[in-house]
């Protein structure tokens, strides 16, 4: 297990280095002088040259990449030349908003989606199963930004149930909760459908397994069989899907943060790319990539913890 963990960490580092290097090259290929864009139309050529020097943009690309990783080893993500704040401060100031949003969305989806999937599996081919199936597919096909826009119009403008923009006042928990309901709903809705379909099919497969037949033969109650034995195995694919789905969750968070004008790392990346604020782009993408790697590794480890067969194979 320890060797497996070390392997995953090593692989994670390789992924992060490759992803960030690739992005570094890509954003330098996109047209647009960052110094000129950051300084605006009034900047003189001297000011632009000075800022390029300060940002290290006057150096060859590979030197910039090496410097970035060199600084990273010292825990330095660089400085935002506009606000003179450290990139780490900016990124880690925004990250909790995105994590809180993703956590709320996926928790909501799990709470609704898994029982729905179980219920459908246990009542296979019933009317409720069919209705649930239709609703689930509808949820899966609804893009997050469409759900976001309609929920804004219905729940904020029409019904006035929830606020439309922002993330709530600092230190006011309930205000923050009211601000997260709609964005989390927008992101989580498709996951409700996805998880319910996944759990349904997985559950049906598990319920047909030999060990479940054996459990029934021993006379165990149906609820014990379902909740103690079958569900534990049926949720395994869910854990993997959520881990791998972190990338999708982050991209959905980006759209949602823009629509709801919420602070967060997605909006930070979007704004920074528009203004060619490279240090902030690099810092944000680095943290997002690390987040993705951690979540996939965690999902593998949770799988191993839940399923002794996987653990034995490691």
């Amino acid at each position: 297990m320890l060797i497996y963990l070390l392997k995953r960490v090593g692989l994670g580092i390789v992924i992060v280095v490759l992803a960030v290097s690739l992005l570094f090259i890509m954003i330098h290929m996109v047209p647009g002088d960052p110094a000129r864009i950051l300084l605006g139309p009034r900047a003189t050529p001297e000011m632009i040259a000075h800022l390029s020097f300060k940002m290290g943009l006057d150096q060859p690309l590979f030197v910039q990449i090496l410097k970035f990783f060199g600084n990273l080893l010292r825990g330095d993500l660089g400085m935002d030349v506009i606000t003179n704040r450290t990139v780490a401060d900016i990124v880690f100031g925004q990250l909790p908003y995105t994590l809180w949003l993703i956590f709320t969305a996926i928790t909501g989806a799990i709470i609704i989606g898994i029982p729905l999937g179980c219920y459908s599996a246990l009542h296979r081919n019933s009317i409720i199963d069919r209705v649930t199936g239709i609703i689930s597919v509808a949820c899966i096909t609804a893009p997050a930004f469409v759900v976001a826009l309609y929920s804004l119009l219905i729940f904020a403008v029409w019904l006035h149930w929830f606020p439309a923009v922002g993330a709530g006042e600092k230190g006011q928990f309930w205000d923050q909760v009211s601000h997260i309901v709609m964005p989390a709903f927008a992101i989580g809705l498709s996951w409700v459908g996805y998880l319910s379909r996944l759990v349904r099919s997985s559950m049906l497969e598990v319920l047909g397994d030999n060990h479940i037949r054996t459990a029934r033969a021993y006379g165990l109650t149906e609820s014990t069989i379902v909740y103690r034995y079958a569900l534990k195995l049926a949720v395994l694919p869910t854990v993997t899907v959520i881990g791998v789905g972190m990338g999708f969750l982050l991209s959905a968070a980006l759209f949602t943060e823009i629509v709801f004008s919420r602070p967060g790392i997605g909006k930070l990346i979007f704004d920074s790319i528009s203004t060619r604020n490279y240090p902030v782009v690099m810092g944000s993408v680095l943290v997002s990539t690390i987040l993705f790697v951690i979540s996939t590794t965690l999902s593998d480890l949770i799988n191993a913890w839940l399923d002794p067969r996987i653990r034995a194979a490691l």
């Binding site: 904020a156 403008v157 006035h160 606020p163 439309a164 923009v165 922002g166 823009i258 709801f260 004008s261």
Partner: peptide, 19 residues
């Protein structure tokens, strides 16, 4: 002062009472 770059979103925020 709330930074909302999109005017459409700002209009929705106004109509919902946030602005």
């Amino acid at each position: 002062i709330l930074p909302i770059d999109d005017e459409g979103s700002a209009q929705i925020a106004y109509e919902s009472g946030d602005l």
